[in-house]
C-alpha cells in the first residue's frame, strides 16, 4: 500500500468517525469539537490530492471561522442564558434513509463515470490558476456570489436592528 493510500484510509476513518460523532453526541459543545475534527480531516484529504491551497482555505474558513461562530452561538445560549440544549436526533430513521439514498446515488454516478485508475498529477501552480479562473472564466458566478453575500449581510442587519 502506498503512503497516499494509507493516508487516505486513515483520514477516511477519522472523517467517518468524527462525522458520526457530530450527529450522535448529545452534548452540543462536543458535537462542535467533532465537527472541527471532521473539517480538519477534510482539509487533510485536499492535502493528499496536492491541493494545498484548498487545504489552507478549508482550515481558515471552516475550522477557524465557521466553528468559531457556531461555538459563539452555543456559548451565548447555553451557559450564559442558562438554557441547556441537548441534541435530540428526533428524525434519526428518515435521516439515515436519506443519507443512504444520497450515498447510493453518488455511488451510481461514480459507477457510470469512467474514472482513471491513477490520479493524474496536478499541473502548474494551483493557487495562481484558481485565482485566474475566478476573475476570467467564472467571473460571473463569482460576482453573483458576492451579491448573494451582500444580500445575506443586509438581511442579517435587518433582523438584528433595534426598534429605536
Amino acid at each position: 500500500m502506498t503512503l497516499e493510500a494509507a493516508g487516505f484510509w486513515g483520514l477516511a476513518a477519522v472523517l467517518l468517525a468524527s462525522s458520526l460523532a457530530v450527529v450522535l453526541t448529545r452534548n452540543l459543545f462536543h458535537s462542535v469539537l467533532y465537527l472541527a475534527v471532521a473539517l480538519v480531516a477534510t482539509g487533510g484529504v485536499f492535502l493528499l490530492l496536492d491541493a494545498a491551497f484548498l487545504f489552507g482555505v478549508q482550515l481558515l474558513l471552516y475550522a477557524g471561522g465557521v466553528v468559531t461562530i457556531v461555538v459563539f452561538a452555543i456559548m451565548l445560549t447555553e451557559r450564559l442564558v442558562g438554557e441547556r440544549i441537548r441534541q435530540t436526533s428526533r428524525s434519526l430513521v428518515p435521516g439515515a434513509l436519506l443519507a443512504v439514498a444520497v450515498l447510493g446515488s453518488v455511488c451510481v454516478f461514480l459507477r457510470r463515470a469512467s474514472l482513471p485508475v491513477k490520479r493524474p498529477p496536478l499541473a502548474g501552480a494551483l493557487t495562481a490558476a484558481l485565482g485566474e479562473a475566478l476573475v476570467t472564466r467564472y467571473v460571473m458566478a463569482f460576482e453573483l456570489l458576492a451579491v448573494l453575500f451582500v444580500a445575506a449581510l443586509l438581511g442579517a442587519l435587518y433582523f438584528a436592528r433595534t426598534d429605536d
Binding site: 459543545f29 469539537l33 472541527a36 480538519v40 494545498a52 491551497f53 487545504f55 489552507g56 482555505v57 478549508q58 482550515l59 481558515l60 475550522a63 477557524g64 471561522g65 466553528v67 468559531t68 461555538v71 456559548m75 451557559r79 501552480a125 493557487t127
Partner: peptide, 25 residues
C-alpha cells in the same frame, strides 16, 4: 518553505482559537 506558506501560517494559527474555547468551556 511551502508554496502556500503565508496561507498555511494564517490557517493553522486560526485553529488556536479551538484550543482556547475548549479550555474556557
Amino acid at each position: 518553505d511551502l508554496n502556500i506558506g503565508l496561507l498555511f501560517f494564517l490557517a493553522v494559527s486560526a485553529l488556536e482559537i479551538v484550543g482556547l474555547f475548549m479550555g474556557g468551556w
